[in-house]
Write a protein that binds this DNA or RNA. Structure first.
Length: 426
RNA sequence: GGAGAGGUGGCUGAGUGGUCGAAAGCACCGCACUCGAAAUGCGGCGUACCUUUACCGGUACCGUGGGUUCGAAUCCCACCCUCUCCGCCA
């Protein structure tokens, strides 16, 4: 959601950002609607003020048993009614139109976000690790199926495409990864573990920016809730409609949850394997900060996500997304991309965004300092730390040997009951 | 799922059609008293938007959205939420 006053002050700034996202003219439209809103509202309020005054005098006349004066005032009010109703209706219509428009417009990128249309415009910030030399690397789906521990067909029989069944040590590896990541974020990075609802209402999905524009990406329940596409929704909405004491910030929250995505616009993409599923586990990181702290928190969050890949010794690079490739709610986003030998390229495994006050406005989440008079909107940040399914993919592919065995990184072995390799006979 | 009770300002809580943005108490802030503190006394103390250099002023808000009325915290309807009891259930 956007601050209409800020927009009023600098319409060009907004126009530039929105034009780049195909919403050219939206800024001018909002300014115009805003003028309509305020004109109609002023007229409506003036009429209402007169009506309130007359009603008050009717009350006084009645109290004084002066029925004649009351009758005169009645007529006066009656005459006002039609006029006032028209103004009120116009004000309401314009307000709704403005609200709907503003709710549909994406966040503005931060100053330092590079220009660019799409993925190609992203900027590599740093790179860590060297891709392993693997002879004729097999992809994770082939490896998993050959091991007899990954079954897409069984999943398809009961659930359809974009689901998978993991078995035995592979199922355990998924669990191990989740626990491992959660332990790092809670024990080492100070995030508080949360076990949140996976079903949320409209208002929550609106708060983080999934609604109203992206409902087709979500699954809907029969009682009109939404399955969360990421724990970002649940964790961020923890502070909705709250006024947080400044000294309690930053809030650092993490959760390991399933995520559900319809992948409506992705038909044909990544159809084979576990890269793009309707359901996957993810460890999510969310920070709630004071406005001037969010940029520093963002860098910190990225390093918290990177730490997991480093610990697993998986080569990755960190990308600063360009304007065209950023999501709806973000003002700056870093993606972590892990090396996938079978594809010979880096693929997204984490996305860390600073949303500024964009989500906070939609949720009405504010902060207040001790001596301070008013309140300010908090800043919200979210990041994957990491996507468990894709990390499993990366592990399989990067740790395979010629025989199709998978080595378990040392840091995970404790979580795997001491298992050092997965070879299918386990 | 059935039956019932209830949602009022930071908190407790009064208010069943007219000057109610809302009593009172607590909390908080200022002043007085005091060497200081406590106690006491006096005063102040909601939010958002509009207008204004400022002062003043206006509008809205008593869970949410509609409705009745000249006028709604108060009456009517729908919904949301909380609590109690019963039923069912991991």
């Amino acid at each position: 959601m956007h601050d209409i006053r800020a927009l009023r002050d600098q319409p060009d700034l907004y126009e530039m950002a929105w034009a780049a996202k195909g919403r050219s003219g939206a800024s001018a439209e909002a300014v115009q609607l805003d003028q309509q809103v305020r004109a109609a509202r002023s007229a409506s309020e003036a009429a209402q003020a007169r009506r309130n005054d007359l009603s008050r005098r009717i009350g006084q006349a009645k109290a004084a048993k002066d029925e004649a004066s009351a009758a005169l005032l009645f007529d006066e009010v009656e005459a006002l009614k039609a006029e006032a109703a028209g103004d009120a209706e116009r004000a309401k219509a314009a307000e709704e139109a403005l609200r709907d428009l503003l709710a549909s417009l994406p966040n503005l990128p931060a100053q330092d976000v590079p220009f660019g249309e799409d993925e190609a415009g992203n900027v590599e910030v740093r790179r860590w690790g060297e891709p392993f030399a693997i002879q004729a690397p097999r992809n994770h789906a082939d490896l998993g199926e050959a091991l007899g521990l990954m079954d897409f067909e069984a999943a398809a029989r009961m659930s359809g495409a974009r689901f998978v069944v993991l078995k035995g040590p592979l199922a355990r590896l998924e669990r191990a990864l989740g626990q491992f990541m959660l332990d790092i974020q809670t024990l080492e990075h100070g995030y508080t573990e949360v076990s949140p609802p996976l079903l949320v209402r409209d208002a929550a999905a609106f708060g983080t920016g999934q609604l109203p524009k992206f409902s087709e990406d979500l699954f809907r329940t029969t009682d009109d809730r939404w399955l969360i596409p990421t724990a970002e929704v649940s964790l961020t909405n923890l502070v909705r409609e709250q006024i947080l004491a400044a000294e309690t910030l930053p809030l650092r929250l993490t959760a390991l949850t399933p995520c559900f995505r319809s992948e409506a616009g992705a038909s044909g993409r990544d159809t084979r394997g576990m890269i793009r599923q309707h359901q996957f586990y993810k460890v999510e990181l969310v920070s709630i900060t004071e406005p001037d702290q969010s940029d520093a928190e963002h860098e910190r969050m990225v390093s918290c996500a990177e730490a997991v890949l480093k610990r697993l010794d998986l080569p990755f690079r960190t990308m600063l997304l360009c304007r065209g490739d950023m999501g709806f709610s973000a003002r700056r986003t870093y993606d972590l991309e892990v090396w996938l030998p079978s594809e010979g390229r880096y693929r997204e495994i984490s996305s860390c965004s600073n949303c500024g006050d964009f989500q906070a406005r939609r949720m009405d989440a504010r902060t207040k300092s001790a001596g301070e008079k008013g309140t300010r909107y908090v800043h919200t940040l979210n990041g994957s730390g990491l996507a468990v399914g894709r990390t499993l993919v990366a592990l399989l592919e990067n740790y395979q040997d010629e025989g199709g065995r998978i080595a378990i990184p040392q840091v995970l072995q404790a979580y795997m009951g001491g298992v050092t390799h997965i070879d299918g006979n386990a």
